[in-house]
Design a protein around this nucleic acid. Sequence first.
RNA 1: GCCGCCGUAGCUCAGUGGUAGAGCGCAUCCUUGGUAAGGCUGAGGUCCGCAGUUCGAUCCUGCGCGGCGGCACCA
Length: 857
Amino acid sequence: MSRYDPKEVEPRWRARWEQEGVFRTRAPREAGGKPKYYVLEMFPYPSGAIHMGHARNYVMGDVVARFKRAKGFNVLHPMGWDAFGMPAENAAIERGIHPKGWTYDNIAAMRSQLKLLGLSIDWDREFATCDPEYYGKQQRWFLDLMKRGLVYRKESVVNWDPVDNTVLANEQVVDGRGWRSGALVEKRKLTQWFLRITDYADQLIDGLKTLERWPEKVRLMQENWIGKSQGLRLRWPLVEPGPDGSDEIEVYTTRPDTLFGASFIGLAPDHPLSEALARENPDVAAFIEEARRGGATEAEIETGEKKGVFTGLYVRHPFDPQWKLPVWIANFILMGYGTGAIFACPAHDPRDLEFARKYDLPVLPVVQPPNIDDPINIEDEAYVGPGTLINSRFLNGLSVETGLAAAIRKAEELGVGAASTVYRLRDWGVSRQRYWGCPIPVIHCPRCGPVPVPDKDLPIVLPDDVSFDQPGNPLARHSTWKQASCPSCGGAAERETDTLDTFVDSSWYFARFTNPDASAPIDRDAADYWLAVDQYIGGVEHAVLHLLYARFITRALADDGMLDVREPFAGLFTQGMVTHETYRTPDGKWVEPTDVDLKVSGSTRAATRRSTGETLVIGDIEKMSKSKKNVVAPEEILGAYGVDAGRLFVLSDSPPERDVQWTAGGVEGAWRFVNRVWAEFDDLVLGDDAPTDSAAAQALRRSTHKAIKAVTEGFESFRFNSAIARLYEFVNTIKSIDRAAVGATARREALSALARLISPLVPHLAEECWTRLGDTGLIVDAPWPEFDPALAVDDELVLPVQINGKRRGEIRVKPGAAEDEVRQIALSDEAVSRHLDGATVRKVIVVKDRIVNIVAG
RNA sequence: GCCGCCGUAGCUCAGUGGUAGAGCGCAUCCUUGGUAAGGCUGAGGUCCGCAGUUCGAUCCUGCGCGGCGGCACCA
């Protein structure tokens, strides 16, 4: 007997796997006809340390990879680093470390941490997005997309931090101030690079239908994000021309059926006509200025009151030139959606109603709700439901839907408008005024304009000699880097100093993994073989941006002939977070779990602080975060219980898509399981054989094959926790058998199956067990145990017998017993007849192999 | 406000139109030569509530209640 010592066992097997190169990916021709399987977890940002959330993510992927491998697939399971981005520059600013050194040091640290997890990754394919080899290839296809018109420059309004001299993303603006500098953020117009993702909007929606192995929730989120709506663009002639000379206002509406309920026209404060009016009307100028300040963030617009100002202008109704309506500027109208102008129908739109009541504008109902006899009366709630159109001239009597189509047809006949589709999705702004990113490979020539860098000059590599001692983009103030000659005319010119959004980097890495050494950005043969990714695994926080951008880039590259697939991820799984209870001192300071003693008595729990003896307040269960100090570092667990126990625990207590709560007790339970399994294999003596058709042997074989079935199904369907529950049961069965009666053959079958069933979860332990069974070779190369349905069948079943739906007894029958026979046995059962007590049996329902119900009375 | 998910043992969660389950925790006992432990046995349930469908509902349907997430002046 020896205690199981993960500190000795686990490194030994990892060394063996590495030495034999078992996780090296097999090229198609080496695969020997095996079907391919590509497992990928979202690659990490190299922050410097692996946390439990990473660990759970990568362990899930590893279970899938190892399981599929055992099932006979040729598996690709690579790893890399999403290595560009702001934290590296912040480290440079705060600590004077170069982003490059900081990033590669972090990668080295995290790589060795990941390797401790025993993952079946092909490390030969590793790359970081900040490798010039990688981003140089990215520049190549970026220029290809540019040639195809999918890349363009446009002036757009951005959040500008005047202290840091940089553009901020919306989420970096907190209460109208820059998250780092605290300076009031300005709206500034900048010329930026954009990718034409809106060209693919319809495809991206339609493609969602084909993604059957994606969570419904993610598909819905993407559909909402793209936000397709069908409506009408409609031109309203101005009675007097605007100050900019415009003679009409174009609005967008999805409710042309309510056109005869129109009350006024509304313009966004930043609509060109609004701005023109502001130049000559101080009231309008003041209002626009106020709206701009009050609406620095979209969050503020939400809570803000509806406000507006009358412009003095009037328009004519497109369906009735006699009908004049006032033009207002209103703070709730967005320039970025539709045409930046609306027609308001207060009776049937809550926003318009609030505005109309405030400024005493007409409210004319035009939809009569169904099943109501009294004429509709609008008080303080707009009616947005279905109904029949009224007060609407040629639309009267039509339903909302048919009226909608009729109004569009009429507008088109009159030549005043056209059916139009509008998306919430905007083109993807990819410019970042940052150093640590992929340089945009363009040269600005004063004579020729923006000119793509010729292929032979790629990659445009980031200069190393940059300084972070002043705010702004170090590339822009570098003494020599940006000087270039124009590829077109040869004259003096300047390089683009913006770099690409890091979401571009992560939009194609899965394709590069199929051959990371290819001279082209993507090796077409390798990509055709491996893509799409069969199983992609990552956090739901990427449900929209990353996953949508990757889908778009895949399609764009496919249209460029670089790829065959149009959807990169055939299967997607979004896993939950790792959480932990929080602890605070009475005066509210967070305390780390390692400094907490928990005492349980009955149903109450008390926490004390180990270092001081203070009584602590047990707080909520929250995502592990440094700020709440409820973090458990993977190394702590690995040191105490080994990798396998940790792997087992993060998958055992909760369905993988949900959060899992990290508890000391839970890990100890997993550790105990490891030991219970090991005890069965350690000093394994199988003893004398007994006939495999003995009752005891049959019973064990039945358990074995039921376990094979249940665990296999658990892994196939991502129910790792329930697979683990079945394994716990199976181990309990194995430990409770009478070894002499069962005999060596059946027991060996059970243990051999057990070792292989646990191998995706606890691979080190499984290898060690495999050795004790005396099997040759590694368990990672062993085939998955085969399920034999004949052996899983019970030889006798216990059927409950209900009388009027209440369980009153049970009978024993052979599986598949005939209905008549079962009825006889049930009716003659002593407990049943006692409960029937002479009542008339009206009906007997026999559900084969499940239950008998007697209706009596 | 709109959309989605969830509600089962003290905790974390499986599960099924037909006998309510697992792990942890808790209690009792055994072992003290697997001991930074191991084992036996056990208690514990309004399957969130109400109504409906059904021979039978934790499961299906509807209406509530509670929690979580996403989107949100998107015309």
